[in-house]
């Protein structure tokens, strides 16, 4: 019984016959394992069914000074002040819920109570970091383009 459980089994030197047997067993498991690994590569997608991370949000004049515009479909807030235009993602960096903006300009996540100040900095709750500020640029057709795949430093604005 003890031998089967590990201990004394290793005290004897391995016989040639046993070695070949072990080699056969390991080649069996190796083959099955390699085949499994190869098969399990299939569910890992090579191409993602996603549209372009860049999307137009409108002309600069649509965002007058002091405006705060929510674009739910794109999951962003667009702010405009004298410093320029900025886009902040509404996706909570904790577990992917959408934060709500309160009247005082702060943000709260409905799922686990993370709170963020008006600049998106995390002040309490489980969020490991602040809300993500997104890159805003001016497209060739004069429209503003937000890139939801490109994060910029908090406070970055584009002056148009």
């Amino acid at each position: 019984m003890n031998g089967a459980l590990g201990g004394p089994r290793f005290e004897k030197p391995i016989q040639r016959r046993n070695f070949l047997g072990m080699l056969a067993a390991w080649s069996f498991f190796g083959t099955i394992g390699a085949a499994l690994l190869g098969a399990l590569r299939l569910p890992m997608p090579a191409v993602f069914p996603e549209s372009d991370s860049r999307f137009p949000i409108g002309k600069p004049e649509d965002f007058p000074d002091g405006s705060v515009i929510h674009i739910p479909r794109r999951r962003v807030w667009v702010f405009s002040d004298t410093g320029g235009i900025a886009a902040v993602s509404t996706v909570c960096p904790h577990l992917g819920c959408l934060v709500g903006r309160e009247d005082n300009g702060n943000y709260t996540c409905p799922c686990h109570g993370s709170r963020f100040d008006a600049t998106g900095k995390n002040v309490s709750g489980p969020a490991p970091r602040g809300l993500v500020w997104l890159d805003v640029s001016l497209g060739p057709d004069g429209r503003l383009i937000v890139d939801s795949g490109k994060e910029v430093d908090r406070g970055t604005r584009i002056l148009v």
Binding site: P43, P45, F48, P49, E50
Partner: peptide, 20 residues
């Protein structure tokens, strides 16, 4: 990120995630 990609087949919950 890799676990999420295998689970959802995408970066969001959609057709791919539902079928998986």
């Amino acid at each position: 990120g890799q676990i999420k990609e295998v689970m959802l087949g995408a970066h969001f919950i959609g057709e791919e995630a539902l079928i998986r």
